[in-house]
Deep mutational scan, measured.
Amino acid sequence: VTLFVASYDYEARTEDDLSFHKGEKFQILNSSEGDWWEARSLTTGETGYIPSNYVAPV
């Protein structure tokens, strides 16, 4: 399981994006799509795309 933590807050801009807060942890589901990764929030359980430059490895 690949875990990352949010370095910043992010507000979703499309329905496919995932909003999150600094400190929130994610399981990365797919990182092969470039700068936007499909992730599941371990806080909310929601799945969506997050900007990879807003998160760091745990």
Score class of each variant (00 low, 15 high):
1 V>L: 13
1 V>Q: 13
1 V>H: 13
1 V>I: 12
1 V>W: 11
1 V>N: 14
2 T>A: 10
2 T>Y: 11
2 T>F: 11
3 L>I: 15
3 L>P: 05
3 L>K: 05
3 L>N: 06
3 L>R: 05
3 L>S: 06
3 L>D: 07
3 L>F: 12
3 L>Y: 13
4 F>K: 04
4 F>A: 10
4 F>Y: 15
4 F>E: 03
5 V>E: 13
5 V>M: 09
5 V>K: 05
5 V>S: 05
5 V>Q: 09
6 A>E: 04
6 A>H: 00
6 A>I: 03
6 A>Q: 01
6 A>N: 02
6 A>S: 06
6 A>G: 04
7 S>Y: 13
7 S>T: 15
7 S>G: 09
8 Y>W: 11
8 Y>F: 12
8 Y>M: 13
8 Y>H: 10
8 Y>C: 15
9 D>S: 08
9 D>T: 05
9 D>P: 07
9 D>A: 07
10 Y>S: 02
10 Y>L: 02
10 Y>A: 01
10 Y>T: 01
10 Y>N: 03
10 Y>P: 01
10 Y>Q: 01
11 E>P: 04
11 E>R: 07
11 E>I: 13
11 E>Q: 12
11 E>L: 10
11 E>K: 10
11 E>F: 09
12 A>S: 10
12 A>K: 08
12 A>G: 11
12 A>H: 05
12 A>E: 02
12 A>V: 00
13 R>T: 13
13 R>L: 11
13 R>F: 08
14 T>S: 14
14 T>H: 14
14 T>G: 15
14 T>F: 15
15 E>S: 13
15 E>Q: 12
15 E>T: 12
15 E>G: 13
15 E>P: 13
15 E>F: 10
15 E>A: 13
16 D>G: 15
16 D>K: 15
16 D>W: 15
16 D>R: 15
16 D>S: 14
16 D>A: 14
17 D>I: 11
17 D>M: 14
17 D>K: 15
17 D>Q: 15
17 D>L: 10
18 L>S: 00
18 L>I: 10
18 L>F: 08
18 L>N: 00
19 S>E: 03
19 S>M: 02
19 S>A: 06
19 S>H: 08
19 S>P: 05
19 S>R: 04
19 S>G: 07
20 F>T: 03
20 F>S: 00
20 F>K: 00
20 F>V: 05
20 F>Q: 00
20 F>H: 00
21 H>V: 14
21 H>G: 08
21 H>Y: 10
22 K>E: 07
22 K>M: 08
22 K>F: 06
23 G>R: 00
23 G>C: 05
24 E>I: 02
24 E>S: 04
24 E>A: 05
24 E>N: 05
25 K>Y: 15
25 K>C: 12
25 K>Q: 12
25 K>W: 14
26 F>C: 04
26 F>W: 02
26 F>L: 08
26 F>T: 01
27 Q>E: 14
27 Q>P: 02
27 Q>C: 13
27 Q>R: 07
28 I>C: 04
28 I>H: 00
28 I>D: 00
28 I>Q: 01
28 I>M: 03
29 L>A: 05
29 L>Y: 06
29 L>H: 04
29 L>C: 08
29 L>Q: 05
29 L>E: 04
29 L>D: 04
29 L>K: 05
30 N>E: 07
30 N>Y: 06
30 N>P: 04
30 N>S: 10
30 N>F: 06
31 S>D: 13
31 S>L: 10
31 S>N: 13
31 S>E: 08
32 S>A: 11
32 S>R: 10
32 S>I: 10
32 S>T: 12
33 E>M: 14
33 E>K: 13
33 E>H: 13
33 E>Q: 14
33 E>P: 10
33 E>T: 12
33 E>L: 13
33 E>C: 15
34 G>P: 14
34 G>R: 12
34 G>S: 12
34 G>N: 11
34 G>K: 13
34 G>Y: 09
35 D>G: 11
35 D>N: 09
35 D>F: 13
36 W>P: 04
36 W>L: 07
36 W>N: 05
37 W>T: 02
37 W>Q: 02
37 W>H: 03
38 E>M: 15
38 E>D: 04
38 E>Q: 13
38 E>G: 04
38 E>W: 15
39 A>C: 04
39 A>G: 05
39 A>M: 04
39 A>Y: 02
40 R>I: 11
40 R>F: 08
40 R>L: 11
40 R>V: 11
40 R>S: 05
40 R>H: 06
40 R>K: 11
41 S>G: 02
41 S>E: 02
41 S>R: 11
41 S>D: 02
42 L>P: 02
42 L>E: 07
42 L>H: 04
42 L>Y: 06
43 T>L: 13
44 T>F: 02
44 T>G: 03
44 T>Y: 02
44 T>N: 05
45 G>T: 03
45 G>W: 06
45 G>L: 06
45 G>M: 07
45 G>N: 07
46 E>K: 15
46 E>P: 00
46 E>Q: 14
47 T>A: 07
47 T>M: 08
47 T>L: 07
47 T>I: 14
47 T>K: 09
48 G>T: 01
48 G>L: 03
48 G>W: 03
48 G>M: 03
48 G>Y: 04
48 G>I: 03
48 G>H: 03
48 G>K: 01
49 Y>F: 12
49 Y>A: 04
49 Y>T: 07
50 I>S: 01
51 P>H: 08
51 P>Y: 07
51 P>C: 11
51 P>E: 03
51 P>D: 06
51 P>T: 01
52 S>N: 06
52 S>C: 13
52 S>R: 12
52 S>K: 14
52 S>W: 07
53 N>P: 06
53 N>F: 10
53 N>Q: 11
53 N>H: 12
53 N>R: 12
53 N>I: 09
53 N>A: 14
53 N>G: 12
53 N>S: 14
54 Y>R: 08
54 Y>V: 06
54 Y>M: 13
54 Y>N: 05
55 V>N: 02
55 V>K: 02
55 V>G: 03
55 V>I: 10
55 V>Q: 03
56 A>C: 14
56 A>D: 09
56 A>W: 10
57 P>Q: 08
57 P>K: 08
57 P>W: 05
58 V>S: 08
58 V>G: 05
58 V>E: 10
58 V>K: 04
58 V>F: 10
